[in-house]
Write a protein that binds this DNA or RNA. Structure first.
Lengths: 135, 135
DNA sequence: CTGCATCCCCGCCGATACTG
DNA sequence: CAGTATCGGCGGGGATGCAG
């Protein structure tokens, strides 16, 4: 029985507000884990206008380190957000591109971006209010 | 000039695909920082059906520790997602509730939840494919 | 050009004990 | 009931150097 609104306990799954939220097998946690990293969303947005090569991505996101660029791209590829194509040139060139899934993710993600931009001032105000109230 | 699609460099702001993405003053990074924590989204969803008290939240999200419940609620309050109301009963009771901003966030967030649920199988398949290809 | 390997720091988070 | 304080592990991410 429910001791609080929206919860189902005593089963394998933890549901909150109709959403599966158990630590394992929680779709949105899975997405957030890979996408909320420091660089993931930037790289996906950078690919919105078309495929880019490794060095082009480096220039597009200037502050990323080589290490994190490699690793983040690998994570995004592993989960199906992007593809990785090697061209056997000399020296080799590697092209990264959004998959259809990557595009559909950005459709949703950009709604969050828009909300964030519109709400930024509200958040900043709340934050300074809170800090001021705490002296 | 743009050395790659969607970037504007040499200014104070880094824009990618029309979105401000500098490390400082990036709205969506700000939102992701507070919301992508292990417990934030669960607590916000738990409050969707109405205000809850501290102990009720604890029961709704069984695995959360006292420490993280306190801290996460504080972070969410600081940024304006929720309110905290103390009732001078004996012993004291404290009620947490979504703000209007919290509700509007959940409207957007639930789109991401829906996408995640619909895409879960695609992601899992991509992941096993990738791991299998890597032997 | 496109990576991989190593070292290291720091912040998130869990466990536990204590307070008004 | 609703917190606070302290300790410690673990993992994300930066810096640097090496390799195909």
């Amino acid at each position: 029985m429910n001791t609080a609104p929206g919860i189902i306990k005593g089963e394998q799954v933890l549901m909150i507000a109709g959403v599966p939220m158990a630590m394992d097998n929680c779709p949105v946690r899975d997405v957030l884990n890979t996408v909320s990293g420091k660089w993931s969303s930037l790289l996906l947005l950078a690919l919105l206008d078309g495929p880019l090569r490794f060095s082009q991505l480096r220039r597009t996101v200037p502050d990323i380190s080589q290490r994190m660029l490699t690793q983040t791209l690998k994570d995004l590829q592993r989960d199906g957000y992007i593809t990785r194509t090697v061209y056997p040139t000399q020296p080799p060139s590697v092209e990264y591109a959004l998959t259809q899934m990557g595009h559909s993710f950005l459709d949703v993600f950009q709604k969050l971006v828009t909300w964030s931009v519109q709400t930024q001032n509200t958040i900043l105000a709340a934050r300074t209010d809170y800090d001021k109230a705490a002296e």
